[in-house]
Structures are given as C-alpha cells and as structure tokens.
C-alpha cells in the first residue's frame, strides 16, 4: 500500500471510468430493448429490461459520483497580499507577498506622494466564503 504511486491511482480511476461507461451504455441499451419489447406487446420482458436498465443506471451514477469525489483537483490557494502604508499621509499600496515581509517592517521604497518612509501594515489572504444558509 505504502508503495502505491500516483500513476497507479490515475490508472485505476481510468479503468473505473471505462467500467462506468460500459455499464451506462448497457443500461441505456436495456431500456431501449424494453421499449421495443413493450411495443412488441411482450410486457414481461419489457418490465424486466426496464428494471435491469434502471439498476444499471443507478449503479453507474453512484460509481461516477464516487470517482468524481476522488479525482477532485485541489483548489489553488488564494494569493497572500501585503499592504504597505505611508507613515505620514496614509497612502496605501497593495502588492503580492514576498519572502521576508512581516507586519510592521520598514520597507525600502518611499511614499510616491510625500517621499516619507513606508511600512508594512497588513499581510492577509482573502477567502471567498461560501454562502451559508440565511436562517443560521
């Protein structure tokens, strides 16, 4: 188990996808046959093929939902932003975080307005919150 590599996992999910696809085709086929049989007044066969078709459909839908959860790609984390503020006039400049930044660090560059010293006033990341139910 511990030696299982990522390549193997992706192969497995490909195999699963193929199986799901075949099941899907067979179930549609089964439903089609059931309709044909129904039209041919063979009610018994029609019923059985319909049942088989729907079972196949639900199985493949279930398997698909399972694999989708597995191969969900990791979401890229939001960028970390650094806010640089002018000591005197409060002019703000926001840029991406750089290694070595910390809150209340005096930075090299001066304020473009009044040529005063600037410092890092904030470092944070902004996350878009998923909407929660209102009544909560």
């Amino acid at each position: 188990m511990s030696r299982m590599t990522e390549g193997q996992t992706s192969k497995i999910s490909l195999l699963v996808l193929v199986v799901i696809f075949i099941t899907l085709i067979l179930s549609f086929l089964s439903i089609y046959i059931s309709i044909e049989a129904f039209l041919a007044n063979d009610d018994l066969s029609a019923t059985y093929f319909l049942i088989v078709g729907f079972i196949g459909l639900s199985i493949s839908a279930y398997m698909l939902s399972q694999t989708r959860r597995r191969i969900r790609i990791a979401i890229k984390p939001p960028p970390i932003m650094t806010t640089i503020t002018c000591e005197k006039c409060g002019f703000k400049n926001i840029r991406e975080f750089q290694r070595g930044d910390y809150i209340f660090k005096e930075v090299e560059d001066t304020c473009p307005k009044c040529k005063e010293k600037m410092y890092i006033s904030a470092i944070y990341r902004e996350v878009k919150e998923k909407k929660e139910e209102k009544w909560l």
Partner: peptide, 9 residues
C-alpha cells in the same frame, strides 16, 4: 494555522 485571513486581520 494557515495564512491569516482578512477577517481575522
């Protein structure tokens, strides 16, 4: 323990 969120700041 992840980078500070704006709300927390």
């Amino acid at each position: 323990i992840s980078p500070m969120r704006k709300e927390i700041y």
